[in-house]
Amino acid sequence: MQIIFDNVHYVYSSGTSFEKHALKGINLKINKGEFIGLIGHTGSGKSTLIQHMNGLIKATSGKIYFNGEDIYDKNFDMRTLRSKVGLVFQYPEHQLFETTVYKDVSFGPKNLGLDKLEVDLRTYEALKMVGIGDDLIDASPFELSGGQKRRVAIAGILAMQPEVLILDEPTAGLDPRGRDEILDQIAKLHKEKNITVILVTHSMEDVAKYVDRILVMNNGNLVMDEEKVKIFSRYKELEKMHLAAPQVTYVVNALKEKGIPVSTDVTTVDEAKNEILKVFKDKIQKI
């Protein structure tokens, strides 16, 4: 078990009229190599939850373990945790600050106190992983396009070689192709390096396409934690929390309701296509 949350509560502005119970007794186990989707409407506690994972926010009560170690133990090194659990914030390109792409990406590894060779190695590797070519390495990050900036910023986290990668809406504001490029790269990374990935997103279609397991936050509670297909089959409950299932899930459910024998365990276009074709195969007209 890589990350364990044991009854974690978080209350902020405690004792004032702004007091808010942002996390209410979260229990959670995350295994190495999982690809997890975290969903919930704005203000449900998603951001607060992920910031606990790398120690940026300290729980009001409860325990968090990383690789078996209590992260609130006084001998635990928080900075190591931050390098092992890489957190990519929303609009990460807003934190770029260096004069060149190279310098910006190497900021993280340098902070880890690595030697020059290792910093170089990691920087180049990270840039390669996000598909930024050598021609841009000495460019100013401020001159890149929106999508490129985003990828450089993600490389800045990857260069720390985290074991867990958390991304808070990594595709916000990108066009459809830009969105696919980034998510495909993350999926590849997950597969090749066996990195644990936690994807925070509002797009059910993205969740359906990439993740295995989904966590649903509502009102500071972790209300669902199951396999993707099981979560989306509870789409009526999701709707009550201002969430939804992917469109194709609704299609197969509507067909099923009309008595057509399709499986409703369907969340992506490909799955839906195969499932529908199974039933409708004799209706295919050869053109």
């Binding site: 910031q51 790398n54 940026l56 900075r79 931050r82 390098s83 890489g86 957190l87 914030f89 990460p92 807003h94 934190q95 600050f97 900021f107 993280g108 902070n111 880890l112 800045g156 986290i157 720390m160």
Partner: peptide, 26 residues
Amino acid sequence: IMKAQMARGADFETGGVIKRAKSLVP
């Protein structure tokens, strides 16, 4: 931004005056 840089290992809290001033650049 502070949190985002801390996630990249930035340290705003320790060190002497010069180091701290430098750490403000990011």
